[in-house]
Design a protein around this nucleic acid. Structure first.
Lengths: 96, 96
DNA sequence: TATATTTTTGACAAAATTGTCTAAATTTCA
DNA sequence: TGAAATTTAGACAATTTTGTCAAAAATATA
């Protein structure tokens, strides 16, 4: 997901803990150039990065995962006709 | 979305109405080769194709759109931790 | 059957995405 | 201030995705 908001969010957390990009990038197995662009919203952050991010930034994985998915759903589908109806149908389908 | 099931679904509808791929492909502005692969689940069907599909297959757009989105959500996120929680959070965020 | 039509396949080029590297710019701090 | 560390930007190659074409395979029908 390319997102200025989400990128800025994790950048702020990183800076609050004084962790350089170098450390986070290594954990995510990408280079600092890519991480910089992710933080600036110029490259996508993928869902498989969330566990490593949560661990290295020492934040709750569950919250971060939920934040990531919910924001991605909105950015992907906001404005699509019947999106809410589709989500509700999906939820009921899961339960069966 | 690459999906054998969804591809087969639209293929069945198309065959029931005896519409050749040629006609549907033209409506979607793709060639029959691509449509064939979509029906076989080898190439992705994109959400912008749903309106044209519904029209040419003479089926209800709302139902098809809901079916498409709900199945895509499942195929993208099924198995992701906290997916249901994320969806619920997303829904409450929409309402505000 | 044999001809026309439809569907599928595979090869290929174009376009988009991803990842890496280098160096410039910025920030930190001794 | 000046050196070290960090961050950002841009160029580039590698990979993946997308779209097109031609022809083979399968199906329909005269």
């Amino acid at each position: 997901m390319k997102s200025k908001d989400f990128g800025n969010y994790i950048k702020t957390l990183r800076e609050q803990k004084n962790i350089p990009q170098r450390i986070v990038a290594h954990k995510l197995d990408i280079d600092t150039s890519t991480l910089s662009k992710i933080e600036l919203g110029e490259r996508p952050l993928t869902i498989d990065m969330i566990p490593g991010l949560a661990e290295i930034l020492e934040i709750d994985f569950k919250s971060l995962q939920i934040k990531f998915i919910s924001e991605k759903l909105l950015s992907d589908y906001k404005g699509q006709p019947y999106f809410v109806e589709a989500v509700k149908k999906m939820l009921t389908n899961i339960k069966k």
